[in-house]
């Protein structure tokens, strides 16, 4: 058994370095695409194929958030690593699992995407390129920056405007799309997202304000997004009232809190 393990160690130690130089523009870069998925078996296959076509050789991690369908199997068949959570935890928790895994694996740049095909895989290289320019630890793909194609429902639009405005006021930088799950994180931002300071249910304007408090620079880049296929939203119906209230409270306490010392 000992001998077996030794063989594995020596085998696994060598190949990743070769791959790294192929993957990133900078040889030491280790990338990972993180996709939280809940009951997305119908769509995740196409999403993964898109990513592999547009951003080949970047490892993909799907967080199967307690799905009741075949999300995990489909994702594995399409070449992704899969972490399965034993029950449904919600978007933020699933995403954070990915960030924590990324840190443990020594990933330097993590890109988060949605599993429903909303985010265009063609924009991934742009996000990565932008974050590799240096000086920035978070790049957010914004639907609204220089774009007129994305049209959410009036109520949703109002909520996004409100929180965008709040985030803009609090961070002193223009924030147009605080709810965007299409982000690239590195360095301190990645460590912050993997820590217990990360807002667990839906990271939104509160996380952007927290990043600003920690002195981490966030940049928005315009991306094209497709409308969510069946217009299924994470914050819909009666939950949206709770969501707005929770987010206002969350922003308020983030502003009240001292700057976390660790970051």
């Amino acid at each position: 058994m000992r001998a077996d393990l030794k063989i594995i160690r020596s085998e696994t130690a060598a190949p990743p370095q070769q791959e790294e130089s192929l993957v990133g523009r900078i040889p030491t870069e280790k990338l990972l695409i993180i996709i939280p998925a809940y009951n997305e078996a119908d769509r995740i296959g196409a999403v993964l194929d898109d990513i592999q076509r547009e951003a080949p050789k970047i490892p993909i991690l799907v967080i199967n958030d307690g799905s009741r369908d075949a999300t995990a199997e489909v994702a594995r068949q399409h070449g992704a690593e899969v972490i399965t959570l034993p029950y449904n935890n919600g978007y933020g928790v699933a995403l954070q699992t990915g960030f924590r895994y990324a840190l443990q694996q020594g990933v330097t740049v993590a890109v988060s995407m949605d599993a429903d095909g909303q985010h265009d895989a063609r924009e991934i290289p742009r996000l990565i390129h932008e974050i590799q320019k240096g000086g920035i630890d978070v790049v957010v793909g914004s639907r609204f920056l220089n774009s007129k194609t994305y049209r959410p429902s009036p109520l949703r639009r109002m909520g996004m405007l409100l929180f965008g405005l709040l985030a803009t006021v609090c961070t002193g930088r223009r924030v147009t799309d605080p709810t965007s799950g299409f982000q690239a994180l590195r360095g301190r931002a990645l460590r912050l997202a993997a820590s217990d300071l990360y807002p667990p249910d839906y990271p939104d304007a509160d996380f952007l304000i927290l990043l600003h408090k920690c002195g981490i620079t966030v940049r928005e880049v315009p991306v094209k997004m497709r409308p969510s296929p069946d217009n299924k939203s994470m914050h819909g119906g009666s939950k949206s009232v709770y969501y707005v209230f929770k987010m206002l409270l969350s922003i308020f306490v983030v502003l009240l809190r001292q700057k976390p010392e660790r970051f």
Binding site: D4, I7, I8, E11, T12, I63, E81, V82, I83, T84, L85, P86, Y87, N89, V93, Q96, T97, R100, Y101, Q104, D196, P200
Partner: peptide, 25 residues
Amino acid sequence: RTLTQDIGILYQERESLRKEIAKSK
């Protein structure tokens, strides 16, 4: 929440280790 995340990550690591062991065997 932390435990759930850890369990998910550990399961994944166990699976990939199993695959590697099978491969090396």
